[in-house]
């Protein structure tokens, strides 16, 4: 009897220790997150000012600003969404509304392909962009080449998210529409898309919030690290915030590191805003479908 009881006490202790370890790990990862944010803002806070946001890069760290990089980021995001959104949603519509009816072997193949594309390292997309857009189509290291590269990068993510949103629309709605004599396209445009749209939008924003922080593919296509002018057209050279940050980190002087921290201090709120917007949309959407 006694032995058994001892054993069960050991079991209880094991349980407690295990839970404590798990909680400790969770706490540690959250503390790391807090440390990261605190470190960035502590280093960069003194540099954050309106002049910093509207200034141009400079050899003198205290005079440098991020305007070209910030505008570059905004322009390239707008272009990327213009390129990737219609194609991504179109592909998703094909898979959910057309291919699922025909269910060919080909569409299965494409499906596996997209799942794989979503997991390809982003720097590989940079190599693709370098060879195809920069060299073969000789777009040079332009905004357009960068946007095309990023568009290919986010395309699989947009397709996957849009398909999920389309799948969430009940089949009964489609059947009702068909029964009233609507064609497939009329059904999609008037019934399915309006309902799926918030979900598609959420997925797209999340995909873009990933793209906005992407550095490697744009460095690979040769985006400049020092741009002292605002990009003025599709074929203009450009830089983006993450590249500007990378450039400042790679310099030895601590003053430039402070600039990098301050630029991160601008990039992160932008990103959290996008994520927050996406989550807000998702919550609203879920309530409406119920």
């Amino acid at each position: 009897m006694k032995v058994r009881r001892a054993a069960s006490w050991i079991q209880i202790w094991k349980e407690l220790i295990f839970q404590a370890v798990c909680l400790l790990i969770l706490m540690a990862s959250l503390i790391a997150l807090v440390a990261l944010l605190a470190d960035v803002y502590a280093d960069g806070f003194s540099r954050l000012s309106w002049d910093f946001v509207t200034g141009f890069p400079s050899r003198f760290p205290h005079r440098a600003g991020i305007l070209p990089a910030l505008l570059g980021t905004i322009y390239i995001m707008l272009l990327t969404v213009l390129l990737a959104f219609p194609v991504g949603v179109g592909a998703a519509i094909y898979f959910e509304e057309y291919a699922s009816v025909e269910h060919t072997r080909f569409s299965q193949l494409v499906e596996i392909n997209i799942a794989n594309l979503a997991a390809v390292p982003s720097i590989i997309y940079g190599l693709l962009g370098l060879a195809i857009f920069v060299r073969m189509l000789s777009l040079g290291q332009s905004l357009l080449a960068g946007a095309l590269t990023l568009a290919l990068l986010v395309l699989p993510v947009i397709i996957i998210a849009s398909r999920e949103a389309l799948r969430a629309v009940p089949a009964s709605l489609r059947e009702a529409s068909f029964a009233l004599g609507a064609t497939r396209w009329q059904t999609i445009r008037r019934q399915v898309l309006p309902l799926a749209f918030p979900g598609i939008l959420t997925g797209t924003i999340l995909a873009l919030s990933r793209a906005i922080g992407e550095t490697a593919p744009l460095i690979t296509i040769g985006a400049l690290t020092y741009v002292a002018f605002i990009p003025e057209g599709l074929f203009s050279p450009f830089t983006v915030l993450p590249i500007q940050i990378f450039n400042w980190i790679s310099r030895p002087q601590a003053e430039f590191h402070a600039n990098a921290a301050a630029a991160i201090g601008v990039l992160l709120p932008l990103l959290f805003l996008m994520n927050g917007g996406a989550i807000w949309l998702r919550n609203r959407f879920q309530k409406r479908l119920r």
């Binding site: 219609p86 194609v87 991504g88 949603v89 179109g90 592909a91 519509i93 094909y94 898979f95 509304e97 057309y98 291919a99 569409s107 494409v110 392909n113 997209i114 794989n116 594309l117 390809v120 590989i124 997309y125 190599l127 693709l128 060879a131 195809i132 290919l152 395309l155 699989p156 397709i159 064609t183 497939r184 396209w185």
Partner: peptide, 30 residues
């Protein structure tokens, strides 16, 4: 009209294949 629309969506779907083909072709060539 319906046929055309379906073809357009199909083209979007095929573009993802071209991405893979592009990646593989570029890497293999070099």
């Amino acid at each position: 009209r319906e046929k055309w629309i379906q073809t357009a969506f199909f083209a979007c779907a095929v573009l993802s294949i071209f991405t893979t083909v592009g990646i593989v072709a570029v890497l293999i060539f070099e």
